[in-house]
């Protein structure tokens, strides 16, 4: 338990570590032998780091720049900037289908988030507050879910959803996304719930709060940070999921962004500028999420240690 607690506190970007580092650096100054060799190797490593950053960033930069080029320019002038900036590629991409995929993704993601947080936090509440043999079994059942992978379930899920008449509906995605996000969510939230002091709820019971009241009025509000983490992780998953989205949805009007982009590519033929504009539109929400909510995201990913 302590491990998880520490994790929660040890935020990547806390000033605490910064101060420590600064102190270390100061101490270091006195002991450091300021030889030339050290400086050179530092600069070589720095160069390597920047080079790697360039390797990561350049293709993305190219994607953004080329999204405003015409096909001829992308084909014949790979490296150059556009001679005419075709901003209208974005409007074209948006009206030619990306808007539909975008709102489908938005709907699926939002409903998935709501269900995951609601159902997951309720289960975590039980799993953290009660003890019995059945609770232990339920906990193992939940944790075991993390180890199951969607690939193995793909065909049975397809059969089941067909049988339920849900294939080719957004529910096929929402229900399966919720199921596959629940185990991690429950574990994360449960760990947080366990750290909430018992005294709080005891006083609440004295005040006449019901069980539900304790969950809704005490546990949930106290757990906002971990719930934000859950939301970010779920959004990341639901927005980017590809396999289910490809197999369970056929209809173009229902597709989400990851699978819709494949249709979009086929439909566009060689209108590469518009295709790239569509790709940029698809990527932007998650990059924004990273920039603004990185601490929650990083915490969740590292605690869950399960790739999206």
């Amino acid at each position: 338990m302590t491990k998880t607690n520490e994790n929660i506190k040890a935020d990547l970007f806390t000033s605490d570590t910064q101060i420590k580092k600064a102190r270390l650096a100061k101490m270091d100054k006195t002991t450091r032998r300021t030889n030339l060799q050290g400086k050179i190797s530092k600069n070589i490593i720095l160069l390597g780091l920047l080079l790697f950053a360039f390797v990561i960033l350049y293709p993305l930069f190219w994607m953004v720049v080329s999204s405003m080029k015409s096909y001829d320019e992308i084909y014949n002038n790979v490296w150059g900037l556009p001679s005419v900036w075709h901003f209208e590629n974005y409007a074209t991409a948006w009206s030619m289908g990306i808007s539909g995929y975008f709102f489908n993704s938005l709907f699926v993601t939002l409903v998935t988030i709501v269900l995951v947080v609601l159902i997951g936090s309720m289960a975590a509440f039980t799993l953290s507050r009660y003890k019995s043999r059945w609770i232990d079994v339920a906990l193992i059942f939940t944790i075991g879910g993390i180890m199951m992978n969607p690939q193995v379930a793909l065909i049975p899920l397809f059969e089941m959803l067909t049988w339920m008449n849900l294939i080719n509906t957004h529910w096929a995605l929402i229900l399966t996304y919720v199921a596959y996000r629940l185990p991690l969510t429950i574990i994360l939230i449960r760990a947080f719930f366990l750290s909430i002091p018992r005294e709080l709820e005891e006083s609440a019971i004295i005040d006449g709060c019901s069980e539900f009241g304790i969950y809704a009025r005490i546990y949930l509000p106290l757990s906002i940070p971990i719930i934000v983490t859950t939301i970010v992780l779920t959004a990341y998953f639901a927005w980017n999921e590809f396999m289910f989205a490809t197999v369970f949805i056929d209809s173009d009007v229902l597709k989400t962004i990851p699978s819709g982009l494949m249709n979009f590519r086929d439909a566009l033929r060689t209108d590469w500028g518009v295709l790239l504009a569509g790709m940029v539109i698809a990527a932007i929400p998650m990059v924004i999420l990273l920039v603004f909510l990185q601490r929650y995201l990083v915490r969740g990913l590292s605690e869950g240690s399960v790739k999206g």
């Binding site: 059942f141 089941m160 229900l175 199921a179 629940l182």
Partner: peptide, 19 residues
Amino acid sequence: FILPSLLFLGIFIYIPLVQ
């Protein structure tokens, strides 16, 4: 409280595995 999540896990994760 725990029933919905057990249902989800059972129906969409464990049953397909067995299936």
